[in-house]
Design a protein around this nucleic acid. Structure first.
Lengths: 229, 229
DNA sequence: AGGTGTGAATTATTTCACAGCG
DNA sequence: CGCTGTGAAATAATTCACACCT
C-alpha cells in the first residue's frame, strides 16, 4: 500500500502542533471563550459576512482584541495579516477544535423541573448534542414524556450505557444522591458530567465535570448589591 | 441625643475594614467560593458540628485549605488559632457578607421551558431569594401558572418595577430580544441580572451580570472529550 | 501541639508593544 | 498601510512557608 508523502507530512505537522498545544497547557477559560467566538461567528456567517477582524469580533463578544488573538494562538494560526479572519472557515475550524462538529450522545439523569427544562432546551441540539434518553428513579415519572423523550426507570440506566455509546451525562438529581449517581455513571463509561446538583463531585482525574450552580450565581449577585461594594 | 462611644468606635473600625477590603479588590471568584463554603457550613451545622478546621472544610469543598483561609481574610478574621472556626458563627457571618441574610425581590422575565423550571426551582428560596412575579410577552402564556406564580403580560413589567422594590432579574428570554429586555429592566431600576440568554449583554458598569450559558458548559465538555487533550 | 492569618513566592492570565506578513 | 501573531511585561490568583495565637 503506497502512501501520499504529503499526507504523511501534514499528519506529522499536526501531531507536533498538538503536542505543543498540550505543552502550552491551554487554560479552560480560553476554551470557554472559543465557544463564544464560535457563536458570534455563526451570527456573522448568517449575516453573510466574509471576513472579520479581531477588533470587530472582540467588540461583539465584549473583550479585548489581543485576548481573542492570544486565545486563537493556543490552537493555531487562522488569520490573514492585514485582512482579518475568514468568517466561515474560522467558525468551522473552531467547531472542530471544540468538538461541536461531531455528534455527542448524552443522557439526562434526574427529571425534576430543571431536568424537564433541559430536556426541552433547544440550544443543545444546535451544537451536536443529542439527549438520547432521560432517566428518573421516581416510578410516577417513568413512562411520562420529557420533551420528545419517554422517561425511563433509573434501574435501566446501567444496561443502556452498556449498549449505547454515551460519553456525557447531564446530572439534575437532588444533591444528596448526586455523588452516588455520578459514581454509577462513571463506572459505566461516562467521561464528562454537566452537574446541576449543588455539590462538588469527587471524580477520577480523567473525568471532566462542569458545575452549573444556580444558587451560587444568584448569591454572587446579592453580594454585589449588598452595601459597600 | 447621646451616643454610645463603643458603638461609634466599632462602627469606625468596621468602616475602615470595609475600605481596606475595597482596596484589596476582592476577586469575584473568591465571592463565588464564599457561597460554596456557606452551603457546606449549613450542612455541618445541621449535623450538629460545633467547629471545623480550614483543612476539613476545604477537603469537603474540594480545594486547598490555604485558599479557603486566604478567601476568608478578604473579609475579616473568623477563626481561632489552634481550634478552627465556629461553624454556625462563620455561616452566619458569611451569609451576611453575601447578602443571603436579607430578602431579595426578583422578577423572572421570559417563561419558556427554562423560565418555567426556574420558577419551580426550590434552591433559590433557601437563600433569601423570592421570585415575586413572572412576565412573558406571549399572550398565550399570560394568566397561566408558573409554579406558584401567575404569568403576567410583559407590558406590565415597567409599572410593576416602579411599584415594587426589585433589584434582581432572571432573564430567560430568547437571545435576539435579550439586550432590549435587559435595557428595559435597567432603565426601570434593576441592578443585577442573571442572564440565561446566549449573548453578552452590554450594560452600565454599575449593573452586575451573571451569565449562565448552558451551551458553553456543554461545549467545554466536548472539547475535553475530543482527541488529544 | 494544632490550628489560623498572611506576606512572599509562584503560577496563571491578561495586556502591551511591536515584528512580520499580505 | 492594516491587522495578525507573539514574546515580554504587567496583573491577578494560588500556593507556600512560617509567624503567631490558644
Amino acid at each position: 500500500m503506497t502512501k501520499d508523502p504529503n499526507v504523511d507530512k501534514s499528519d506529522k505537522l499536526e501531531r507536533i502542533e498538538r503536542l505543543e498545544r498540550i505543552e502550552k497547557n491551554i487554560p479552560d477559560i480560553a476554551v470557554r471563550r472559543l465557544s463564544i467566538y464560535c457563536r458570534y461567528l455563526e451570527e456573522l456567517e448568517e449575516m453573510g459576512r466574509q471576513t472579520v477582524s479581531s477588533d470587530e469580533l472582540a467588540e461583539l463578544v465584549g473583550i479585548k482584541a489581543t485576548q481573542l488573538r492570544k486565545d486563537l494562538t493556543y490552537f493555531g494560526q487562522f488569520g490573514v495579516r492585514g485582512k482579518g479572519y475568514a468568517v466561515s472557515e474560522l467558525r468551522r475550524k473552531l467547531c472542530e477544535i471544540i468538538g461541536t462538529d461531531q455528534r455527542w450522545n448524552v443522557v439526562l439523569v434526574g427529571v425534576g423541573s430543571l431536568g424537564l427544562a433541559l430536556a426541552h432546551y433547544k440550544g443543545f441540539r444546535k451544537h451536536g448534542v443529542n439527549i438520547m434518553a432521560a432517566f428518573d428513579s421516581d416510578q410516577a415519572k417513568v413512562g411520562k414524556a420529557a420533551g420528545e423523550l419517554i422517561i425511563r426507570p433509573f434501574s435501566t440506566l446501567k444496561d443502556y450505557l452498556a449498549i449505547e455509546n454515551v460519553q456525557i451525562a447531564i446530572l439534575a438529581v437532588p444533591g444528596p444522591v448526586a455523588q452516588s449517581v455520578a459514581d454509577h455513571l462513571i463506572e459505566n463509561g461516562v467521561r464528562a458530567i454537566m452537574n446541576f446538583a449543588p455539590i462538588r463531585l469527587r471524580v477520577p482525574a480523567e473525568v471532566k465535570i462542569y458545575n452549573v450552580d444556580l444558587s451560587i450565581a444568584l448569591e454572587t449577585l446579592t453580594y454585589h448589591l449588598t452595601a459597600d461594594h
